[in-house]
């Protein structure tokens, strides 16, 4: 068990008139090598949960263990924790400040005491991970880039710390369709090619269905479902809709086809799977036609 949350609750403005409970007794364990998707309505506590995971917030009640160590026992150790767990917030491009992309990406590793050749190597590797060409981009100002490129730089600046876990909060929010697609490939690569443990928060069910292996559904500060995307999007359709969440769009199509009496599997999550399913029923039809 890599990360373990034990009965963790978090309350904003504790003991003040506008006290709000953001997380309510969360028990959660995350292993190395998982790809976790977190979904839930705005204000359900997703972002608060992420901040507990890398020690930005301390649970009001309960504990956070990373590699078996309670991270709030020793405050000095928090920097070590952030070396292991890289977190990017929503719209990470808003945190850029350096004059060149090289310096921007080097900020993280430099804070951890990495210098010279090793630093160069880290920056190069991080830029490769987000598919930005090192020689072409390193000396440019981050502020003259397009929105999608800026976000790549921001994510690279976290990757340069070389964390084992990467937590992305809405990485594809308000990107144009083209950047959106290339970001999905990028995230997939981080998991498959670079073997990072991933935690992804998104409102976009298509993204979650395509990438995640385990989905956590949150509502009102609690994790109400914790299962594979297939289970969740197939078994709990009504429950999801009740809390205002949708299904992936292809899944809707397949549900519709099934209602129309077609022999399809309604648990389909990605376009690729949907294609197979539809072809398979079309083939059956074709052979039927040949009888005539």
């Amino acid at each position: 068990m890599f990360i373990y949350l034990e009965n963790a609750s978090y309350t904003y403005n504790l003991n003040m008139p506008f006290e709000t409970k953001a997380l309510d007794s969360i028990n959660l364990s995350i292993d190395r090598g998982e790809f976790i998707g977190i979904i839930g309505h705005t204000g359900c506590g997703k972002t608060t949960l992420l901040q507990l995971l890398n020690g930005l917030l301390e649970p009001t009640i309960g504990h956070v263990f990373i590699d078996g160590v309670d991270i709030h026992q020793n405050k000095k150790g928090l920097k070590e924790i952030r070396k292991k767990i890289g977190l990017t917030f929503q719209y990470p491009e808003n945190q850029l400040f350096e004059e060149s992309i090289y310096k921007e990406i080097a900020f993280g590793p430099r804070n951890l005491g990495i210098t010279d050749d090793l630093l160069d190597e880290r920056v190069k590797k991080a830029m490769k991970m987000v598919e930005l060409d090192y020689n072409q981009y390193k000396d440019r100002s981050p502020f003259e880039l397009s929105g999608g490129e800026m976000r790549r730089v921001a994510i690279a600046s976290v990757l340069a710390i070389d964390p084992e876990i990467i937590i992305l909060d809405e990485p594809t929010a308000s990107l144009d369709p083209q950047s959106h697609a290339s970001f999905l490939t990028l995230i997939k690569n981080l998991y498959q090619k670079y073997h990072k443990t991933m935690i992804l928060v998104s409102h976009n069910m298509d993204v979650i269905a395509e990438l995640a292996q385990r989905v956590l559904v949150m509502e009102k500060g609690k994790i109400i479902m914790d299962s594979t995307p297939r289970n969740i999007f197939q078994e709990s359709v009504e429950q999801l809709e009740k809390i205002g969440l949708e299904l992936p769009q292809v899944t809707y199509v397949m549900h519709r086809l099934k209602q129309m009496g077609k022999e399809v599997n309604s648990g389909v999550l990605t376009i690729e799977e949907a294609k197979e399913e539809i072809f398979s029923i079309l083939k059956v039809k074709k052979s039927n036609n040949e009888i005539f």
């Binding site: 901040q51 890398n54 930005l56 920097k79 952030r82 070396k83 890289g86 977190l87 990017t88 917030f89 990470p92 808003n94 945190q95 900020f107 993280g108 590793p109 804070n111 951890l112 600046s157 976290v158 710390i161």
Partner: peptide, 16 residues
């Protein structure tokens, strides 16, 4: 609010 968010983001990048 924004300042707090930026502080947290930079802390996630190892800033002290």
């Amino acid at each position: 609010e924004e300042t707090e968010k930026i502080i947290k983001a930079q802390m996630s990048r190892g800033a002290d």
